[in-house]
């Protein structure tokens, strides 16, 4: 028996919207500690890891660990039927091949049940080691989204280089080249507008902008984004989900660090 009641239902909608373009089908794993998902995109270049901790739900009941394979497109279709202020409850019976999304309007005068068929998905769970990253950049998520969007109109890849000066995003394409430098800036009124760079070693990595852009779909989930970079590791693009958990995107770098890319 599984019953998860999420008061802020729109959050679940945003989460699904942010990953459904990257991953079509995924297993949602529910345990006593929380509701999580880990999935790779079809080309095995990017990985998304989602965690919604049990504490974030108004009511969380998960009798035994259960893994539910869902088609994210279908799930998104159903979740779109909920209002933005609706309370969403996810329900599943043990051994059942369906999951039920229940949408309650805030004043409880409308209750909708959507039952979705589950699917068997063979997915490999990857062990993601804890790692010390050479550089960690925290910046406003909207800023990051803007940069990725702008650069992708010029080129296909972005070179992210972090130095003491700041973080530089650069690209090069048929029509020209672009460089965007964000300096460390902690002297702002609101902490979420700060750009904070923690750097142990300078890093210089190349990534496919296509994926970066897809990650920025999670921007509505959080005001800030954290980029963790190490020269021999995938970049981690993390959006924190307030009081609940996080959504992390891992993206393998382009193997050659080529400025001309």
């Amino acid at each position: 028996m599984l019953e998860l009641r999420l008061v802020q239902g729109s959050l679940l909608k945003k989460v699904i919207e942010s990953i459904k373009d990257l991953v079509t089908d995924a297993n949602f794993d529910c345990s006593a500690t929380g509701f999580s998902l880990q999935a790779m995109d079809s080309s095995h270049v990017a990985l998304v890891a989602l965690l919604l901790r049990a504490e974030g739900f108004e009511h969380y009941r998960c009798d035994r660990n259960i893994s539910m394979g869902m088609n994210l497109t279908n799930m998104s279709k159903m979740l779109k039927c909920s209002g933005n202020d609706d309370i969403i409850t996810i329900k599943a019976d043990d051994g059942s091949d369906t999951v039920t999304f229940m949408f309650e309007s805030p004043n409880q005068d409308k209750i909708a049940d959507f039952e979705m068929k589950l699917m068997d998905i063979d997915s490999e769970h990857l062990g993601i080691p804890e790692a010390e990253y050479h550089a960690i950049v925290r910046m406003p998520s909207a800023e990051f989204a803007r940069i990725c969007k702008d650069l992708s109109s010029i080129g296909d890849t972005v070179v992210i280089s972090v130095t003491k000066e700041g973080v530089k995003f650069s690209t090069r394409g048929d029509i020209g080249a672009a460089n965007i430098v964000c300096r460390q800036n902690t002297t702002v009124d609101k902490p979420e507008e700060a750009t904070v760079i923690e750097m142990n070693e300078p890093v210089n990595l190349t990534f496919a902008l296509r994926y970066m852009n897809s990650f920025t779909k999670a921007t509505p989930l959080s005001n800030t984004v954290t980029l963790s970079l190490s020269s021999e590791l995938p970049v981690v693009v993390e959006y924190k989900i307030a009081e609940m958990g996080y959504i992390r995107f891992y993206l393998a770098p382009k193997i050659e660090e080529d400025e001309n890319e």
């Binding site: 095995h44 995938p234 393998a252 382009k254």
Partner: peptide
């Protein structure tokens, strides 16, 4: 040139 997440 694109790396694979599985190699990490």
């Amino acid at each position: 040139k694109q790396g694979n997440i599985l190699s990490f």
